[in-house]
Design a protein around this nucleic acid. Sequence first.
DNA 1: TAGATTGTTAATCGATTAACAATC
DNA 2: TAGATTGTTAATCGATTAACAATC
Lengths: 216, 216
Amino acid sequence: MAQSLSTATVTRLYQYFQIFKAARGSGLEHVSSEVLSGKLGIDASSVRKDLAGVASGVQKLGYCVSPTLYALEDFLGIHNTKEAFLVGVGSLGRALLGYRGFAESGLDILAAFDVDEERIGNTIAGKTTLPLSKLTNLVQRLNVKIGIITVPADAAQSIADLMIASGMIAIWNFAPITLTLPADIIVRNENLAAGFSLLSYELKRLLEQTKESEDQ
Amino acid sequence: MAQSLSTATVTRLYQYFQIFKAARGSGLEHVSSEVLSGKLGIDASSVRKDLAGVASGVQKLGYCVSPTLYALEDFLGIHNTKEAFLVGVGSLGRALLGYRGFAESGLDILAAFDVDEERIGNTIAGKTTLPLSKLTNLVQRLNVKIGIITVPADAAQSIADLMIASGMIAIWNFAPITLTLPADIIVRNENLAAGFSLLSYELKRLLEQTKESEDQ
DNA sequence: TAGATTGTTAATCGATTAACAATC
DNA sequence: TAGATTGTTAATCGATTAACAATC
């Protein structure tokens, strides 16, 4: 098996993919590591190292747009659609069900689940909301491996446990809570409030810096 | 000025905050670095190093829940509400406007903006949608520093440029595109599709591993 | 007191950057 | 050919982990 890449590297590969997609849209034929490194604010040799395992460049020109884009899409699993179920049809759940970006990223949310009688039976972006009691059976019948959690924080752990008991092995958690799960389960936490804290921390630092230099 | 902390460290501080909040809910009085490290899957000395700059622990007991929680909230800016404007009232924009988690994270989205006549005037979770043409004037009058971008990818760069020209200094970008911005602007990209790619990459690796061991 | 846990230093590990030969 | 850019190795940098004295 190929060596494991860090989260940071895979995130950058996704950014290269975005840039190559935009480059194709602009009709460019080549993009150099120098240009890519400028956009991401990192060293050009990092870019070359990242891309070395995925695509190959052409000396004097850089990376050819079409083949590199294809190779990145392949690596990121965009050509290979993966099915998922979503639990929790609140405002965030509905937003994810209606998000068009997923289709072109290889994610297909087959159906949504909820415990609220009012929500059951509703269709959002072509996906029906089913009662949570049907989750286990459908996970097993359709062999769905990925669960998306968009329930409130206090319900998230029990939903995660249910998903795992049903046979799911990967969880994409949008609830603002740190889940306790077996080590062999793949989890990714997408905490919007935590994301804002990062922005807020940097902003605080910038404002302090400005204030300090004014005080001098 | 205190030394800058890495994104990884600030993200972990947010996770500690979540765990301490849950601990308070369960009536616990202390949490040790050992317990925290177990939940995050990192070394206990990392936890102690992270917390050293923010709170102080008690030997033999660990970290006292109430004062540590307060210190973390303070550090993460949760006590100090920050105002923002959001541009793009599509499904994701509406989900963010209605997201309750932000209120308890120190973010207050004052208003939303859009170019679509149909959306202007609508109120979502108490926030009115205004025409984009009013953005610059309101940013300056209310001195709003943070802009949230939830428009489609092809409109995101021009919205970011407009926000910066209006005087904003921090951008939280949800559009799936790598923005080109001045170096002194704070940007955080929250790319949902990229997040899924990370999960998808790990899942692919796990399945390959399982297959390999079966083949032996 | 003995035991448990912090705070901190030193050691290790991994990721990023610099440098440069290869080459188109 | 000369110039530009990749691919890769070595050097640097920073983050994580291990170890342990301090101490409640």
